[in-house]
Design a binder for these strands. Structure first.
Lengths: 236, 236
DNA sequence: CGCCCAGTTGAGGACACTCAATAGCGGTGG
DNA sequence: CCACCGCTATTGAGTGTCCTCAACTGGGCG
């Protein structure tokens, strides 16, 4: 399923100044004057759930800021199995590898409907010359992604299925900081923590029976965070 | 075991020009003139096997270039178990997180005797102002580490013990590109791929019985790379 | 010589995987 | 409107792999 659903709408760069995610986004540190030096269009992209933004190995010249929605980054094993190596959420950047001359390193697929900004790499390079601070921000982003990757590795590949799922649910809940969490497909959940869909399904069903999870709405679950934390730490 | 074995020898920065790993190291892109602007000492550090270079959570101001030896980066699970998230080899940089104001993110422990250069963070910042290219190199390094982390995740957390160990052995062999590979302790091997020491031991013993591995010298093994590759891909 | 540590091997059991059948939900077309 | 289809989630039974606990081996070193 290719990115047929990508809508492209040319935008004045000036709009970035008032972007909903400007503070958390790449341009947070820029001054008003800097925006005048953006000479190539930054495009608005809408990506519907299940569609692909880019594929592993493609050479592109765009990087993306995620304004809304959730995107998964996929890698593949020799045997064809796939593994989700990261989730991206509001404010995150995708495709930074373009800046250092590499092709995209993953398949990027929307888990929900998404809104993004597509930024041509040359724009970043131009801005970087006037505002070296942009490079520091970029380095900080890379470092953050690296730290996340390390945590992902330690948390989601060790311990029992029950522990891993508890950790995953906690991590999916935190961003909103309340107790609601959207449940993705069992297959996706499995691909994040290295378990089969059946095991994920069984474990989640059991958590529900024990009252740790409660149905809220269609795809949302309420959860007992304290209990999840105990399970995650192997105390239960 | 703290870094009691660290020997520090003040060096003239000028020596970096003739460093054994200069081409592959951080300063590869610098010109002769740039070296005159290094005003703080870059120190030579020797770290013996099993000793700690820095610990998770410490605030330091040094980053390090690894000239020789191998270093493991460790993270911990809530239950106290540890996981090796990355291996560093000749030419790699440790502690880059210092540059973006973070404390060290891992325990860094030598797997073999190591030689390093300790570079104060301010030196990088000074050089970066005259040579923006340094920032690009740093970004490329971060990206490379991130790609490695993703591969590590996909290769070493999926499939049977046999497959994972084959993949690990291949990855440990490749750097030297011949067929010799140093075998670390079983416990370390297990911490890299999420298996117990017993399972690692059993699997390696079996590979030896099948002739895929042969004893060479004390800690070195010869291996049948073609066979390992078949096993790694799940064909055997 | 005997201790200590790392690696090896064994037996038993728990856990997650595989294969397979069933249930629930939404959409489509008669 | 309802029957049918396809897809996902759930559940079950049986098996295999890996973990746990424990004993044994062999080399290095005091």
């Amino acid at each position: 399923m290719r990115a047929v659903a990508v809508l492209e709408i040319g935008l004045e760069a000036a709009k970035c100044r008032h972007c909903a995610v400007r503070d958390s986004a790449l341009f947070a540190g820029l001054h008003e004057a800097d925006f005048r030096h953006i000479h190539r269009p930054i495009q608005d992209v809408a990506l519907t759930a299940q569609h692909t933004l880019y594929r592993l190995g493609e050479r592109g010249e765009m990087l993306f800021t995620l304004r809304s929605g959730i995107i998964k980054l996929l890698q593949y094993l020799p045997d064809g199995n796939q593994r989700i190596v990261r989730l991206l959420k509001r404010g995150d950047i995708l495709g930074m590898e373009i800046l250092v001359g590499q092709p995209y390193q993953h398949d990027a697929i929307a888990l929900s409907d998404c809104g993004l900004c597509a930024i041509p790499a040359p724009v970043i390079e131009q801005l970087g010359e006037r505002q070296p601070r942009l490079y520091r921000d970029l380095m900080a982003r890379w470092q953050q992604k690296l730290a996340e990757a390390d945590t992902w590795l330690t948390e989601f590949t060790t311990g029992t299925a029950r522990e891993r799922i508890a950790r995953l649910l906690l991590r999916l809940t935190c961003p909103d900081s309340d107790q609601a969490l959207p449940l993705f497909g069992r297959e996706d959940l499995g691909a994040m923590i290295g378990l089969t869909t059946e095991t994920v399904s069984r474990t989640i069903a059991e958590l529900r029976r024990q009252g740790v999870l409660r149905d809220c709405s269609a795809n949302t679950q309420g959860c007992d965070q304290a209990m999840l934390r105990r399970i995650a730490d192997g105390e239960e």
